[in-house]
Design a protein around this nucleic acid. Structure first.
Length: 300
DNA sequence: AACCTTCCCAACCGCCGCAAA
DNA sequence: TTTTGCGGCGGTTGGGAAGGT
């Protein structure tokens, strides 16, 4: 024989808890401790099943529960842990004192998940959703703003053929007019060859990336070591010198949040901006990439 | 002011692993 | 060893709140 049933579900109350029920539950647990949920409701004078009592206590009545908005630091931890653990809400909650798994799950589903989707990031894999991204604009921005290099490399990693199609429309001569530094405008609407070799397209962009990385490193303008554009990696690559508002600050960078205070944001827009920074490298304006394109793009 | 839609979150549901009997 | 319930977990829901028309 197994154990006796926890409770007879017939006749037990369901739905929202009343203040009186809460008081009974709190007083009972303060006197006897939170154990043996099977017998607790009867002993506490509650017409609830043990499971309902346990959930009410652990998710709402526990004295150590922290209520209110999530801080930047908490959100950062949630995103990081979710990228590693997935929907293991209890595991994530164990790293956030005072927050319950239910609260974190709700916050993820109602805020973080939606924001990541708006940003074109898959909330499951934490990588850019290329099916939603406009590759033309990515490529344009890469050439006009090297800080978008990460997106291009991520795009190529996931769907190299699509990227190459965008870069190399067939049967068109190269049209590339170098402009002053940081004013490159890739005329996507006018087909362009940026110097990819035809013999091994699969390696072309990584090679291109590697050369750009090399150039950047040589100029000590950016310490760019890893190209995976997953949120997790971007967050973990704190030593790589990009100026995220959350990363270990560069010497001339003022972080949004100080280490001694908890920071909040007031709007979804601020959060969007904040999260977008997780994917950005900041390359100083002094970087001159003209040489790079002359050497690796135009010479091809 | 009234109605409709969307958002949020507390609570429930159902499943699973573990342990009691 | 087998059966069965408990405790815990993640997914889902429904009702109230908030916002829009």
């Amino acid at each position: 024989m197994g154990r006796a049933p926890c409770c007879d579900k017939n006749g037990l109350k369901k739905g929202p808890w009343t203040p009186e029920e809460d008081t009974k539950l709190i007083q009972y647990i303060q006197a006897h401790g939170a154990a043996n949920w099977r017998t607790l409701p009867k002993n506490a004078g509650l017409e609830r099943c043990g499971k309902s009592c346990r959930l009410r206590w652990t998710n709402y009545l526990r004295p150590d529960i922290k209520r209110g908005r999530f801080s930047f630091e908490e959100e950062e931890i949630i995103i990081q842990l979710h990228s590693m653990l997935g929907n293991k809400w209890s595991a994530i909650a164990s790293r956030l004192p005072g927050r319950t798994d239910n609260e974190i799950k709700n916050y993820w589903n109602t805020h973080i998940r939606k924001r990541l989707l708006r940003m074109g990031i898959d909330p499951v894999t934490h990588t850019p959703r290329l099916d939603l991204l406009d590759l033309s604009s990515i490529l344009t921005s890469v050439l006009g703003d090297p800080s978008s290099l990460l997106n291009l490399q991520a795009a190529f990693t996931i769907n190299p053929q699509l990227v190459l199609q965008q870069i190399q429309p067939p049967n068109h001569p190269p049209q590339f007019q170098p402009q002053t530094s940081h004013q490159f405008q890739m005329p996507i609407e006018t087909p362009t060859n940026i110097g990819l070799s035809h013999d091994s397209q699969q390696n072309s962009v990584p090679s291109y990336m590697a050369e750009l990385e090399k150039l950047l490193l040589e100029q000590n303008q950016v310490d760019y070591c890893s190209g995976e554009a997953s949120l997790n990696n971007a967050r973990q690559n704190r030593g790589y010198g990009y100026d995220s508002v959350l990363s270990t600050p560069s010497s001339n960078t003022t972080p949004l949040n100080s280490s001694s205070t908890t920071s909040f944001v007031n709007s979804e827009e601020e959060r969007d901006s904040y999260c977008s920074d997780l994917f950005n490298f900041q390359i100083p304006q002094t970087l001159d990439i003209t040489d790079f394109f002359c050497k690796y793009v135009l010479d091809s």
